[in-house]
């Protein structure tokens, strides 16, 4: 090859390498910038309105004033309903998929595929479904129960997926050991496998809670807007995310409280996701120690 040609090629490669480095750094700066901008706004606008009374007081004047006491109660109730419905159903499904049928069997594949698809359904579609099925067809109306059950359907795939992974991470030696002692599968699950997978199952629960808590669109037409303190599960109750939406879109002058609510929502989600993550990491470490 001609010498000057080669030098030119090297120069181009050098240039390309540097352009690439420049692009990557610029992009990373933009992402970090957007994140910090958003976080900064949340902190600045949100933190100034935070106080203990904001957390416990009832909303006044459509939420412009007062606190979010009743909103937090409604949110917790909706989440409780969602998890009470999703956890037994999800745990049973995960146990069936890991312990009793092979993932490649027709039944296993059918369930797995259906859950995969369910995970991809847009949240507004869950809202439509929850409205017609729970609120209208089952006659639950706009209620905490309708909203919670709708969120249970939404959170089910992520719960099952995480729980399944946790159960699969339990060493097979324990399964063989339990079987060799003549324990029934049920006893092995109850006494050994489920306790051993407990951190992952907790992580699954928390991820499900996180998913449900972040949801807005599925709740507008199921649990509704009412911001009073709910007196039963059949009452409409306004979730925190719906509160943020309503304050910012429909209430002039509600931005400050919307930001404060958003900050609380995010802090709660960060705590939940953080615990979930450290639990799964802990499980991973223990696997390494016992392996």
């Amino acid at each position: 090859m001609d010498n000057s040609h080669q030098a030119y090629g090297q120069l181009m490669a050098w240039k390309r390498d540097h352009l690439m480095t420049l692009f990557i750094w610029l992009a990373a700066l933009m992402v970090a910038g957007a994140f910090l901008w958003l976080l900064g706004d949340l902190l600045v606008h949100g933190a100034t309105h935070l106080s203990w009374s904001f957390l416990v007081d009832a909303p006044e004047n459509a939420g412009r004033a007062g606190g979010i006491g009743s909103i937090i109660v409604s949110t917790l109730l909706i989440l409780t309903v969602a998890m009470l419905a999703a956890v037994p159903l999800g745990l049973a499904t995960a146990v069936l998929l890991t312990e009793f049928i092979s993932a490649t069997s027709r039944f296993g594949r059918l369930i797995g595929m259906s859950l995969d698809v369910l995970a991809g359904v847009p949240s507004i579609v869950f809202g439509l479904f929850g409205n017609v099925f729970f609120s209208v067809y089952l006659g639950l109306g706009f209620s905490i129960l309708s909203g919670g059950l709708t969120l249970a359907c939404m959170a089910l795939p992520i719960f099952i997926n995480t729980a399944e992974a946790g159960l699969r991470a339990v060493p097979d030696e324990w399964r063989a050991g339990a079987a060799a002692l003549g324990l029934s599968r049920g006893a092995a699950l109850l006494h050994i496998l489920i306790p051993a997978a407990a951190p992952a199952l907790t992580a699954a629960l928390l991820l499900g809670v996180g998913r449900a808590m972040a949801e807005t669109a599925a709740l507008i037409f199921t649990s509704g807007y009412v911001d009073r303190m709910p007196s039963s599960l059949m009452d409409s109750g306004r979730a925190l995310s719906v509160h943020i939406y309503d304050l910012s879109m429909n209430v002039a002058g509600g931005d400050a409280n919307a930001y404060a609510s958003a900050l609380i929502l995010i802090v709660l989600l960060m705590i939940i996701n953080g615990i979930a993550q450290s639990l799964s990491e802990k499980l991973l470490q223990r696997r390494i120690i016992t392996a």
Partner: peptide, 21 residues
């Protein structure tokens, strides 16, 4: 009855496998 059978026939594995209890 597999469970009764396994109760009569104990098994020890290559890798010790005490349960996490």
């Amino acid at each position: 009855d597999v469970q009764a059978l396994r109760r009569r026939i104990g098994m020890i594995f290559q890798k010790p496998n005490p349960f996490p209890l």
